[in-house]
Amino acid sequence: MDRSKTYMNSYLAGILIGVFMIAAYYFSGEGLGASGAMKAVVITAVNDINHDYAKEAHFFKARVKDEEKSPAKTWLVFEIIGVIAGAILSAAIYGRLKLQVVKAPHITNKTRLIAALIGGILFGVGSQLGRGCTSGMVMSGMGVLSLSGFIGLVAIFGGGYVIAYFFRKLWI
């Protein structure tokens, strides 16, 4: 059997992710997240290019107050560097490190890439507006039984099922 099609048992992976989430909370008091780190990168970039703008604009203000500390030096950024390392490690072990476009058989690469770009933009906006993405808000929120996590869950997955029909051409 093709090794690259072998995946870890879903429930086991989930339970272990849960354990890492508990560890993140126990050691650092932080939830696992992704979009927060990307936001930190954006803030750092803007701050480096134009500090005076970042000091004034409401979106950046809160994070660049501290002149000494780089806004990129946060727990989430280090966590995300780890995530990258971990993903590469796993892909190497399973033999999945391969440059490719993953898509449904009936669409072209171009369609897939344009859709990916649009989807990314929407996720960028949505995660900022919704105060977190699927991992940071919904999964971590579920862990602490936060109402917002469950609202996010309903909005993302519920919304997904409602609109899935209209985008079926992209996937099946």
Binding site: S35, L117, G119, G120, I121, C133, S135, A155, L170, W171
Partner: peptide, 19 residues
């Protein structure tokens, strides 16, 4: 959160990933 989640739902269905 509800509106952002809705936008993310579109993002997921169109783009196929989350961050």
């Amino acid at each position: 959160t509800l509106i952002g989640g809705g936008i993310m739902a579109f993002g997921f269905l169109i783009g196929g990933f989350c961050p």
